[in-house]
Amino acid sequence: MSDPIIVFDKVTKSYDGTTQVVKSLDFAVERGEFVTLLGPSGSGKTTTLMMLAGFEDPSGGTITFDGRPLNNVPAHRRGIGVVFQNYALFPHMSVAANLSFPMEMQSVSRAEREERVRGALDMVKLGHLADRRPTQLSGGQQQRVALARALVFRPKLVLMDEPLGALDKQLREHMQLEIKHIHEQLGVTVVYVTHDQGEALTMSNRVAVFHHGRIQQLAPPNEIYEKPANAFVASFIGENNRLDGSIVARDGAQCRLRLSDGSEVRAIAGTDLPVGAQAVLALRPEKVLIGPAAAGENRFDAVIEELIYYGDHTRLRLRVGGSDSFTARLTFRDGLPALQRGERIPVGWATADCLALGPEET
């Protein structure tokens, strides 16, 4: 890290003194970065954000923000903007008053408050609605107001906890790009919590994948998707075929994996797995080749269990390698003949496209 603004040093959190919901977190966020904390419910991501915001206290370790430890610093003195899923706007106040109120508490002059409010509302394209009340706005407009309120006092850090969770799909995708563009425009540091994988991949400079209270991998989105650190990351991010087996041979970066049905697959060893170790084959559905293209080292006969039409592609559920839930994704550009349920077809994939991975950290 060239200029970390946030540092977690051996941070833990337990609510009952026994079970740790966050386990020895060690990571840093660089100034101006957009880092997303991603994971299923109960993985520790929201607790991590709440400790950074000051709404929860760590049970152990130190959180440093902009060079100073945050232990014992109350939330209202941290100078951090926070955006929640439920907006938390005052319904009896106008949009402008909602933005002005936090600055009144900081004794900012009226003239400066008015200037900042105008600038923040123009940034989220809501200057024309300054006099309306939150109940007169759509969900997307209310979320923009909440974002503007978090930015109006020009914080160095903005925290966002599932801010788009209440929006419909189309508006959610639009707001993802809006937030991304505002981040790029301002250069403010953002730590964002979501359980939506697509959202994390779309918006972030780096993604921290949480599970069992630990960060399983912290890396740029393309690395998270193409080079998952373990079987959990591979399964949680996007679609993934998982076949269980064991390592029977190693040859540099490549290995041979024996699957549960006795067949063998050549794969890239994604972790330092020795011969004899249990491993998981991870393969993205779009990497599976069907028909004449299924040539090379990893070639199998498969039975079509189901065909599912998605408009821009068709998904095949196949029985292969000891699994009856193996999937392949086919676009109409593939030029394949009509396929039928129950039909036996050749499938294959390149060694470079599949990984042999170990389990997640626990």
Rank of each mutant, 00 (worst) to 15 (best):
I5P: 05
S260R: 14
V193C: 04
D3H: 12
F326T: 07
G42C: 02
E184Q: 15
R110G: 11
L186Y: 04
S109G: 15
G348H: 09
K180Q: 10
F236H: 03
R78L: 07
I6Y: 00
P359A: 14
L281T: 04
E178Y: 00
M51R: 04
P102K: 03
V193F: 01
R344H: 12
G245Q: 04
T12F: 12
R118N: 12
R77T: 01
Q170N: 13
I182W: 04
P74D: 12
V35C: 12
Y87N: 07
A208R: 01
R78E: 08
A302Y: 05
G252H: 05
Y225C: 05
N98A: 08
P155I: 11
L243N: 03
L89R: 11
P285V: 12
I63A: 00
V158C: 00
L159G: 01
N222T: 14
Q106E: 12
Q20A: 13
G358P: 03
R154C: 00
I179S: 06
R258W: 00
I224N: 06
A166C: 10
M160Y: 08
A53G: 11
P134F: 02
I179N: 07
S109D: 15
V145E: 02
K45Y: 03
G311Q: 05
K227S: 13
E361H: 13
C354A: 14
L70Q: 10
S2D: 12
K45N: 09
V108M: 14
L336D: 07
R78A: 07
D9C: 02
V320Q: 02
R250L: 14
A293L: 13
L283I: 11
H195M: 02
V207P: 01
I215S: 00
R266E: 15
R31M: 06
L164K: 09
D16A: 02
R68Q: 14
S41H: 01
D161H: 05
F27V: 04
G291A: 11
N230R: 07
M1I: 02
Q217P: 09
H183T: 11
L289V: 10
F332M: 10
A150R: 03
D168A: 09
L159K: 00
R344C: 03
T189E: 02
V248T: 15
K10N: 15
G54Y: 07
D131S: 14
A249C: 04
R319K: 14
P134Y: 00
L218F: 13
F153I: 04
L243T: 06
D57H: 08
I247R: 02
G187S: 06
P58V: 09
Q136I: 00
T135C: 07
G245L: 02
L316E: 11
N230K: 06
Q142T: 10
V82Y: 14
F210G: 07
L257Y: 03
E178Q: 08
T351H: 05
G187R: 06
M51W: 05
G17V: 04
L336T: 07
L318N: 06
V275M: 10
R341S: 12
H183Y: 09
P91S: 07
E226V: 13
R341K: 15
G140L: 00
Q216T: 08
M203I: 09
P337Y: 11
A150V: 02
T19W: 09
G238A: 04
V73W: 03
S109E: 14
A295P: 04
A148L: 01
P69H: 09
L129W: 12
R242F: 11
A53W: 01
N240V: 08
